[in-house]
Design a protein around this nucleic acid. Structure first.
Lengths: 149, 149
DNA sequence: CGATATTCGTACGGTAGCTGACGAATTCGA
DNA sequence: TCGAATTCGTCAGCTACCGTACGAATATCG
């Protein structure tokens, strides 16, 4: 939102937004042939690398609301990529795992690390670290402020 | 998405996401008493400060798709805050302007600059500039890559 | 002048987030 | 031990994005 910069506020906000959306769009474009959304990819990623997981834990790990994850999981189950069972000692919980076809799909998926690499290729290592630090600090301040409100 | 950092890619992507969402959440929380969403605020902001505008121009200025803006505008018109007329020489275009009640509401709205200020208070000016530069460069690379795909 | 291409706004469908409410299951306290 | 609080997953409803398709209006070109 370029014009907003004239107000001298929300400028970095505008760039975080642009950067976030650009990255996600590229992710989505890459995953489109596989009929996967970016968040669906994160779920598969976690299940493939961290193994089966209780839905609640997965939500915490991916920083999603339970309700949000619930919808994603429903989609993945419908596609036959993920299995949702309730075999634990706590009958409220649902355990998630990749199905055979989910594992097969995961093996076919391209490596997405090229996105991060392309985005920050040629950028000074120290500058990247600074950026991370600034964003982390800003996020923490914002979340703290949100807490109080 | 913290765990993702272990893959050593998408780490900055995760922070831009967190930062963007945290900022937007704070904006939404501040605007909630006025029953306004953050994008609705941007539209009012533009109309209040840049004056009436053709819908297409507004979409370009706010970096929104025409379809997206169309929905936002419909909501604002329904609330009686914005007037949508087609009085130009080009009968396809719709000219947008604040209504009287829209102007009144705008005057009542709090200044949102405290969000940006709070987020980056105490952060070194040079570091902030570096962050802006890195984000801008990354976004441009990502968009260029998206273009080709 | 008439056919074709473009542009504007809208409609529809999809993804990705959120909140709030709810039933079922579990835990905690008195 | 029994009632109250908490937790888990889901549902419904909202904002905010996207892409595609479409009708109407305009521009362009032969």
């Amino acid at each position: 939102m370029p014009d907003v910069e004239k107000t001298e506020h929300l400028t970095v906000g505008a760039w975080t937004k642009r950067c976030y959306f650009a990255g996600r769009a590229l992710m989505d474009a890459t995953l489109r042939p596989f009929d996967l959304g970016s968040t669906q990819w994160y779920v598969l990623w976690h299940l493939a690398n961290q193994g089966p997981s209780v839905q609640r834990d997965l939500a915490r790990a991916l920083e999603l609301e339970r309700a949000t994850l619930s919808g994603i999981v429903a989609t993945l189950v419908r596609k036959g990529l993920v299995r949702q069972t309730s075999d634990g000692d706590d009958q409220r919980q649902r355990r998630l795992a990749l199905t055979r076809s989910g594992e097969n799909l995961w093996r076919e998926l391209p490596d997405l690390s090229f996105i991060q690499q392309a985005a920050f290729a040629g950028i000074d290592e120290a500058d990247l670290a600074t950026t991370m630090r600034v964003l982390r600090a800003a996020t923490e301040r914002l979340q703290a402020l949100l807490q109080k409100a």
